[in-house]
Amino acid sequence: MNAADKKRLLREMLFARRFEERCYEAYVERKIGGFLHLYPGEEACAFGVLEAARPGHDYVITGYRDHVHAIKCGADPKEVMAELFAKETGSSKGRGGSMHIFDVKHHFMGGYALVGGPFPLAAGMAKAIQLKGGDEIAICFLGDAANNQGTFHESLNMAALWKLPVLYVCENNLYGIGTRIDRSTAVVEQYKRVAAYNIPSAQEDGQDIEKVFKAAQKAVKHVRSGKGPYFLELMTYRYRGHSMSDSNAYRGKDEERMWSKRDPIIMLRDRLIESGDLTKAAYKTMDTEILDQIENDIIAFAESSPEPRVEELHKYVFAENDPWVKGAARGGDK
């Protein structure tokens, strides 16, 4: 990873941070409804892993904290914001919402709101890749708490059994909603749990994007070479509550302060400044440009976009004009 790559990633992560912070404001302003799960603090996970993979080519799936993964895969941030604003121009045409961002043309296969639901879906995409003989891999991002669902074990078993090209990335932010991991999980170190399925795994610092990138390179290489699944645990922290309805009262201030010192964006920024590849002024300019883009380009687009039409309420329930549904019976003996 050279200095230019690092600067680009810094900008991408800062963009993601500002995007999510602006979502927070829009939620408070009641422009965004429903549940909203924000990503600040965890940016190095999505950007580090996907930088080592091939976003737009590899198939990516995740849970409900999904805006940033979609954007890194290539989704237009305007469409993601418009989706949050429940508009027809949104990535899911205002039918999905924050937890269901999809951008299939960039192989972002969606955010899903049942904890652990994407585990088997990712294995299935990997099965399809295997059948077709493609060089893509499936990448599934989920939190630590999802590993206590049955789908975790069922999917890892099948992925290992059939050597499916799937990379499971565990973003371990230490809390399952409001319950700390050691109060819900017998084995706290998640990468150890997959040993039961003979799946190679690693644990890495999820706040340092260079470390994440390096660990992910190894993981992606393993999966793409046809050796089967891999499990990468990234130790990270979300700055906000689980969702906007979470007061975050279950965490100590000391703990939050400790993690804020290991902010993935600040760490990379300071490193670039130290090496002489970035000035404080250039960083400030970068930030200003991002804030302008979000306000004048992205928010403006979402605000001014039309709502979905009630006349189209039933669109997308079933395939339209599917010949196998209503057509007269075909064939047979006359």
């Binding site: 294995a123 299935g124 099965k127």
Partner: peptide, 9 residues
């Protein structure tokens, strides 16, 4: 779920 995921592709 694996079948559903495969059907996506």
């Amino acid at each position: 779920g694996l079948a559903v995921g495969a059907s996506f592709l």
